[in-house]
Structures are given as structure tokens and as C-alpha cells.
Design a protein around this nucleic acid. Structure first.
Lengths: 110, 110
DNA sequence: TTATCATATGAATATTTGTTCATATGTTCA
DNA sequence: TGAACATATGAACAAATATTCATATGATAA
């Protein structure tokens, strides 16, 4: 049970927080960064666009695995695709992603 | 199989990428942000330190659930604890966290 | 059209993860 | 010391997730 002297803080905090739906969306967004395969795919795309089999080679996983994960990245608007003949070239959607990536790196390298 | 014209790009990308272990660590770090309960706990702590039962009330989950998740946050150095009598007061470890949080928010609110 | 290559997708499986219940630990106060 | 409270933790369970295999789809060139 909450102590009387804390009741104000609790209700104040509840008011100040973003809407719950927003926080759920935010969690879903970060969930995408929370997998090593996806992180490595995104990292590979920092340099330039790449097609699926190049990505698979770089991260050392099956083409199928990579395709599945690229779909996840697409669904959260983190990458976009460009078709060229038989190949699909993937690239990052925006630079936010690299920024977030770098802030994470900073944190763990402390 | 990788086309000849892509071989250079692939090896160049592999060289430029951070070590695989680092990327695995990074994924583990972001994994912590990828759960709505933990996101809401962190968000509650932006304002001020809070004890466990206040946090449980704010996020509307069991005390036990919150304790388990606070342990996860502690293990990744995202929060710190201060004991005061029977209570444990949790607060954020640094401001990185709020920055990352805000960048994520920016992205999803686009 | 048919063969071949690049990518996407469905189903199955194994693993990870979050939550709960029950209980242990630690702290204060009578 | 013992009762009451706050928090932590172990075990069990349910749900979510990543990967693989097999195969479908889409595109090119012979």
C-alpha cells in the first residue's frame, strides 16, 4: 500500500507520463533494436544500401532469416526497399536510427 | 551467392562494422527498452526517484513483477537503488536513457 | 515458354521472456 | 524477540520470438 506522503508524487507522475498507448508503441519500436541479427543488419546498412544476399553474407545467417527480419524492420519503418531486376536493395529509412544506435553504443562502452 | 561486383562492398562493410560481441551487447541493451513495463518504469523515474510500491501503483502491475523488472534494469545499469529503512528507492543511472527515450519518441511520433 | 536466380513467406520448432504465486529476506518498532 | 511491512527471488506457466526448412512468388534471359 502507498504511504500518504507519496500519494501526491504518484498522481503527479501519472499525469506527467505520456499516454500508455504511446509507451507501448515506444516499447515495440525499441524491441526492433533488441535483436542481434537486426542490429547487425541495420549496422551493415549504415554504409550503403545492400541487397538481401549481401546482407545474409555479412551477418552470416540464412537468406530466409534475413528476409524475415527485414520484414520486421520494414514494418517499423526502419528500412526501405528498392527493386532492381531480381534483387531487392535495402537501405535505412532515416538517420534517427544511426543516432539511436550511437547513443546505445556510448552507453555500453562506458 | 554473391555477385563479383558486390564482393568489395561486402568485405568493406564487414571491416567497418563494430566487433560482433559489441553488437550483441548493444542488442541486449536495447532489449531492455523493448518491454512496455520497463519503459513505463523508466518513464516514471524521469521525474524523481520512487520506491517499489509507488512504481507498481503507477504502472499498474504486481509488486513482484516490478521487482523482477527492476532487477533487469539494474543488471544493465539503467537504474540504481538506495535503501531507506524498509523501502528501496530507485532512480535512473544517467541521462543517456532519457535521451534515447526521446529519440525513440520522435521517431514514432512522425 | 522454360530454366534459373533472388527474394518472400508459411509452418514447425526451440528458445527466450514476462507474469504470477508463494515464500524468503531484510528492516523497523513494540 | 516477535509482529508487521517492504522488497526480492525461485519455480511454474503462458506467450512471444527467432530460426530453419520447404516452397511460393517474381524477374530475367535463353
Amino acid at each position: 500500500m502507498i504511504h500518504d506522503e507519496h500519494k501526491d508524487i504518484v498522481s503527479h507522475t501519472k499525469e506527467k507520463m505520456p499516454p500508455t498507448d504511446t509507451l507501448f508503441e515506444l516499447a515495440d519500436f525499441f524491441k526492433v533494436f533488441g535483436d542481434s541479427t537486426r542490429i547487425r543488419i541495420m549496422c551493415a546498412l549504415f554504409e550503403q544500401e545492400l541487397n538481401v544476399c549481401c546482407i545474409a553474407d555479412i551477418v552470416g545467417m540464412e537468406q530466409s532469416t534475413v528476409s524475415h527480419q527485414l520484414r520486421v524492420l520494414r514494418q517499423e519503418n526502419l528500412v526501405k526497399v528498392r527493386r532492381e531486376g531480381k534483387q531487392s536493395y535495402y537501405s535505412l529509412e532515416d538517420e534517427h536510427i544511426q543516432k539511436i544506435f550511437e547513443m546505445g553504443l556510448e552507453h555500453i562502452l562506458e
